[in-house]
Design a protein around this nucleic acid. Structure first.
Length: 458
RNA sequence: GUGGGUAUGGCUUAGCUGGUUAAAGCGUCGGAUUGUGGUCCCGAAGAUCGUGGGUUCGAUCCCCACUACCCACCCCA
């Protein structure tokens, strides 16, 4: 007996009943990115493991304990097999491609986006999977605060277009390597003086990365953190004017935000501006989107010194919020015509006609189960076909058939020759109905004319 | 890696302090006189009760282990 194999822990099957939601969200993300001048970049799912060590950071949890390592098992390998990793995030690969392909020699800024699976081996919980998907954006070459605001605004635009509510933007600046050194010193002094009140993990952080303590959920640590020195007070001239510029522009756009000096990103490459969009609909994993500046990364990875920034958005988390807020995603168009048949001869003709109508661009189905007419009609009803038509000996002889409106049950005679024209008519009528509904509430007829007039160009 | 919860047909669940053929709804398929769906009616298929041990005369129910899922810590999207 075959043992059934299960999907790996932390992975999801997106089934037909759900995939339209993904398509909708992905399309909207792509359209929004395009409006801002970003073009899609597709990079490999696995990269050299060194890439992530260098960019994300050797000491981060993501690299240290969450990466899926892969290597090709070759039979006669004289060489050491090269070590790869499934990408745990999108920025590293994007930056690698930009440098390797010489894209920074083009007109700047360079704007790229991606939708990609990411892999992290950690324990699952709400909004956390081992394979998850990110929509991310990276911009290269711009050091002006306007760039920071542009990517934040892109996120906000996408959320608005999806109809999301109650998402807040938190921003902070963690400074550049110069001012951060000063700050780390101050932090260490502060927490060292209160060592006895820190939790064990924070004691470790004190040596490695004291800024992490600010992020601790432990109530005692959080209480201590509340009184700790604030990064913003230690920013150098350059960083502080940059941060001021970001805030000014956010204000100018009317983009609401909260300055949260406790935001500390977990990836090493961030500098200056960091931000996150959080929602209360996600349980403990409240961040839907996180990002910031990484002005040093491109150079560090072997490219020309280039300021850069970006964000990554968790698509599963985004879908989770949509679900929680009861936001309906439009379902794809259903079957327009079910072409039933009885008898072998009619079945063949139905097959031929169906094929022809599909060629005209219509969503048409016919029987492939060998069912009786009754069962075929049941099926047509189940799949939500808008119209049905049954082909039998009579119809083949006369060239005429009854076209049935499945909603009203009304039947009208139609010449088989002209079926395509008829379908075209009813499709158009359906679209007009939709338009009418959209403008209902206003002066519908007037608006409709305007709409149509605008499209016809006359 | 750690802690808590859960595990019954495709889905959602019931199963009384362990007792003989595990129940219902939805879904699927079929029927209601053979050329037409949706409501109603009737019927059928479909579950080794997550897996493996143990206690017992007897386990879906009690105990242990494992696995998966859910939630949380850590960390992040």
């Amino acid at each position: 007996m075959a043992v059934t194999i299960q999907a790996p822990k932390g992975t999801e099957d997106v089934l037909g009943s759900e995939s339209y939601k993904w398509q909708f969200v992905e399309n909207l993300a792509k359209e929004t990115a395009a409006r801002y001048g970003f073009s899609e970049q597709r990079t490999p799912t696995f990269e050299s493991i060194a890439l992530f060590r260098r960019s994300v950071g050797d000491t981060t949890d993501v690299v240290q304990k969450e990466m899926y390592q892969v290597r090709a098992e070759t039979e006669s390998s004289k060489k050491e097999p090269e070590l790869f990793a499934l990408k745990p995030e999108g920025t590293a690969g994007a930056v690698r491609a930009v440098i390797q392909r010489g894209l920074l020699n083009q007109a700047l800024p360079l704007r790229v986006y991606y939708i990609t699976p990411c892999f992290r081996h950690e324990n699952t919980q709400k909004g956390r999977l081992r394979e998850f998907h990110q929509f991310g954006v990276e911009m290269f070459g711009a050091q002006n605060p306007g760039a920071d605001v542009e990517v934040m605004s892109l996120v906000k635009d996408l959320f608005d277009r999806l109809g999301l509510k109650n998402i807040t933007l938190n921003i902070n600046s963690i400074g550049c390597p110069k001012c951060r050194g000063e700050y780390h010193k101050a932090l260490k002094e502060y927490f060292s003086a209160r060592k006895d009140q820190l939790c064990p993990t924070c004691l470790e952080r004190l040596e490695k990365n004291p800024m992490r303590i600010l992020d601790c959920k432990n109530p005692e640590c959080a209480a201590l953190a509340a009184g700790a020195p604030v990064v913003l007070d230690y920013l150098c001239e350059d960083c502080s004017t940059h941060f001021a510029g970001v805030k000014q522009r956010l204000d100018a756009l009317g983009l609401e935000y909260t300055v949260d000096p406790h935001i500390v990103r977990g990836l090493d490459y961030y500098t200056k501006t960091v931000f996150e969009f959080v929602s209360s609909d996600l349980g403990a994993q409240s961040t839907v989107c996180g990002g910031g500046r990484y002005d040093g990364l491109v150079e560090q990875m072997g490219g020309p010194a280039t300021p850069a920034l970006g964000f990554a958005m968790g698509l599963e988390r985004l879908l989770l919020i949509l679900e929680a807020q009861g936001i309906e995603i439009p379902k794809p168009e259903g079957c327009l015509l079910y072409l039933g048949s009885m008898g072998e001869k009619a079945s063949i003709q139905a097959c031929r006609l169906t094929n022809q109508l599909r060629g005209e661009g219509f969503f048409v189905e016919c029987d492939v189960m060998g069912r009786g007419v009754k069962a075929q009609m049941k099926y047509a009803n189940k799949i939500g076909a808008k119209y049905s038509l049954v082909l039998g000996d009579n119809e083949l002889a006369t060239g005429k058939a009854m076209l049935k409106d499945m909603e009203t049950g009304a039947q009208t005679e139609v010449e088989l020759e002209k079926l395509a024209d008829r379908l075209y008519d009813v499709t158009l009528a359906g679209q007009l109905d939709k338009l009418t509904q959209q403008v209902a509430g206003e002066d519908s007829l007037q608006s409709l004319k305007t709409l149509l007039g605008g499209k016809e160009g006359e």
